[in-house]
């Protein structure tokens, strides 16, 4: 019991410090805060660098989530409904991008873009990188739901005269929707705060929010705004996990394993 308490304190104290610090009135870091203010939140919201970074993060996250939804769902259908050569390999391959260190995936993709294909780095390359490691969360959520659903509902629908497309539209998709939404949220959350793969695929012109934080981390003048952005990232990442927990009861890990 007490160990559980210490463990949870170990997990939550640092995160709370970040959130509390974003209201710290002191310009330089001082703990405990002597006074509280919302001044930095206002400054961060009107900061052009932060706004730009936020829009890059949103663009990358939404595009990567869209691709991950398409690829992850079709792969989940193939694995749950068919037997084919290389099934084990492909289900291992889909987990590889989040189980290998990000630096390996990052330089591998960067090397492929720059040396092999000659694709200049930008939003497109970020999206390709993010989608690669987001596929797995959509795949796991969709696969768990498809396995639980079974095929009897679809068979019943087809027996009653609906063709494959109608069955998919009226039976399969509505049953799958909440799992896909949960997977999509988690994929977006994963993309939104990723930094390592992004560092290698972003090129010089683009800063996502995590990259913005990283670039301003060692500049004392920006410290209060960094605190606000950091607190925002904590809060934003908590919402998807909360929603996805409520939406899909298929797995405890939200499909990260």
């Amino acid at each position: 019991m007490s160990l559980m308490g210490i463990g949870l304190a170990f997990i939550y104290v640092p995160l709370s410090v970040v959130v509390i610090n974003s209201f710290n009135s002191s310009r330089t870091f001082s703990w405990p805060p002597s006074r509280f203010t919302t001044e930095w939140w206002g400054k961060a919201i009107s900061n052009t660098g932060v706004r730009k970074a936020l829009s890059w993060s949103l663009a990358a996250g939404l595009s990567a989530t869209f691709i991950a939804l398409l690829l992850g769902t079709s792969l989940a259908f193939a694995v749950s409904r068919y037997n084919f050569f290389g099934k084990d390999i492909i289900s291992l391959l889909v987990v590889l991008p989040i189980s290998l260190p990000g630096v390996v995936t990052g330089i591998a993709l960067s090397n492929a873009f720059n040396q092999q294909i000659g694709l200049s780095t930008g939003l497109l390359t970020i999206v390709i990188g993010h989608a690669t490691f987001c596929i797995v969360v959509v795949y796991n959520n969709a696969l768990a739901r498809l396995r639980r659903m079974g095929t009897s509902l679809q068979e019943a629908s087809m027996d009653l005269g609906a063709n494959g497309i109608t069955t998919f539209r009226l039976i399969t998709l509505p049953n799958l929707a909440s799992a896909l939404f949960a997977g999509g949220l988690l994929a977006f959350g994963l993309s939104f705060d990723e930094i390592v793969v992004t560092t290698f695929t972003a090129g010089p012109g683009i800063q996502t929010l995590p990259i913005w934080i990283y670039n301003n981390l060692f500049r004392p003048s920006q410290a209060p705004i960094v605190n606000v952005v950091a607190a925002t990232l904590v809060v934003v990442s908590v919402i998807p996990i909360y929603l996805s927990q409520r939406l899909s009861q298929d797995s405890t890990s939200g499909g990260r394993f």
Binding site: L15, V17, P210, I213, A230, V234, V238
Partner: peptide
Amino acid sequence: ALVLTPLWASYLVKIYAWRTMLEPRTGV
């Protein structure tokens, strides 16, 4: 849920949090 939630909290922010935690003398 309590154990799981921080798994999704930003990796960079977590390390940044430890910077404020471990700052010698003035840290948390």
